[in-house]
């Protein structure tokens, strides 16, 4: 039975199901147990920075829900070694910005072991990590660095835009025999929608058409899907019919869903919370001009963050982030 729950609650539910169904699943990270299992002292567990792991240590114990030291490189490297030898670890990397201190286990180990070992290794590792701006957490806790992991062969990278997809994509990520970076965008973490109670997956590598339209395609991912949907609503009032594509999976990329929509509409604007260079937005633009050139009736529009760090002050942060207004303006520029 479905009921309305938040993305954070959907993540918690997926983790609980994964831990219940498979004894090889372990959960590791800073504060994921968060002082749990000491109820006798009258304390309660933190359940991670966003509370997404609350209750899990109480149910599954300290052997499978492990608080790590603040040692992102050691923790990720250990998780890779555990995955290589038969566990199915889920690691919480508190914010994706912390990739700066732990890239090697992803860049040179998890992503490459299967290939380097001639297909004889598997690394069923899931790295959950909070991405994006919008909570005034400034330059080192607000980045959308999924373009780094999406650009590394051997890794998969997914980013849900709603609670239904969050639960299904997370279960698919955990059950994948490849290392997956699962992004948890701040902008939607506490948004709710209908989510079934049971076990289900949303397949990796498949985009969704979130709204059908015929005049222009808006491509979003994570928190920018909601912005694109709001923009589509505003455009509809003007008589412009916008189709909204939710990429859901950044690697592998569902090129066909994007190209099919572009063929129908002839125009496309991609909306990405990340900075503009070397990223998913430029990747989508490249896809349009290399494989969809004949469908294009206008240049590809890109609404992204500017090429700056993320600022602290709320007014600056709002100016930094994409928004429905910016999307509508970009669409009008194309017509």
């Amino acid at each position: 039975m479905a009921r309305e729950i938040t993305v954070a609650a959907a993540i918690n539910e997926a983790l609980r199901i994964a831990l219940e169904m498979d004894p090889d699943v372990v959960l590791m990270g800073e504060d994921v147990a968060g002082g749990g299992t000491r109820e006798a002292e009258g304390t309660d567990e933190a359940g991670g920075i966003m509370g997404t792991t609350r209750g899990l240590v109480t149910q599954f114990g300290n052997e499978r829900v492990l608080d790590t030291p603040i040692s992102e490189m050691g923790m990720l490297g250990t998780a890779v070694g555990a995955a290589l030898t038969g566990l199915r670890p889920i690691v919480e990397l508190m914010f994706i910005d912390f990739l700066g201190v732990c890239l090697d286990p992803l860049l040179n180990q998890a992503s490459k072991l299967r290939y380097m070992f001639g297909g004889k290794a598997r690394v069923p590792l899931t790295v959950r990590t909070v991405t994006g701006a919008g909570m005034q957490s400034a330059a080192q806790h607000s980045q959308s660095l999924y373009w780094i992991t999406a650009g590394i062969p051997g890794l998969k990278t997914v980013i849900p835009s709603n609670a239904y997809d969050a639960k299904g994509l997370l279960l698919a990520s955990i059950r994948s025999d490849d290392p997956v970076v699962f992004c948890e965008p701040k902008g939607v973490l506490f948004d709710s929608c209908d989510v079934p109670e049971g076990d289900y997956i949303v397949p990796l590598g498949k985009a969704a058409v979130s709204r059908e339209g015929s005049d222009i395609t808006l491509v979003g991912m994570g928190a920018t899907v909601k912005m694109a949907l709001a923009a589509a609503e505003a455009l509809a009032a003007d008589g412009t019919s916008a189709e909204v594509i939710d990429l859901r999976s950044l690697a592998p990329l569902d090129e066909q869903t994007v190209l099919t929509s572009l063929e129908k509409t002839g125009r496309l604007v991609v909306v990405d919370e990340a900075t503009p260079r070397c990223g998913i937005a430029s990747d989508i633009a490249r896809l349009c001009v290399t494989k969809g050139f004949d469908f294009l009736d206008a240049p590809v529009g890109c609404v992204t963050a500017p090429h700056t760090p993320v600022p602290f002050s709320a007014i600056l942060e709002q100016a930094y982030m994409p928004s429905p207004d910016k999307i509508v303006a970009a669409v009008r520029e194309l017509s």
């Binding site: 090889d24 372990v26 052997e63 499978r64 490189m73 050691g74 990720l76 490297g77 250990t78 998780a79 890779v80 070694g81 555990a82 995955a83 290589l84 030898t85 038969g86 566990l87 670890p89 090697d104 286990p105 040179n108 180990q109 072991l113 380097m116 070992f117 004889k120 290794a121």
Partner: peptide, 29 residues
């Protein structure tokens, strides 16, 4: 892997957490 050999490694130090993870597997399983 069939011989329990988790690989040479081109990154100095990177094999240390890999073995640590293998030890975690041994413990949990």
């Amino acid at each position: 892997l069939e011989a329990g050999m988790l690989g040479a490694n081109g990154i100095v130090g990177a094999g240390i957490p890999l073995a640590t993870g293998a030890a975690l597997t041994c413990k949990v399983k």
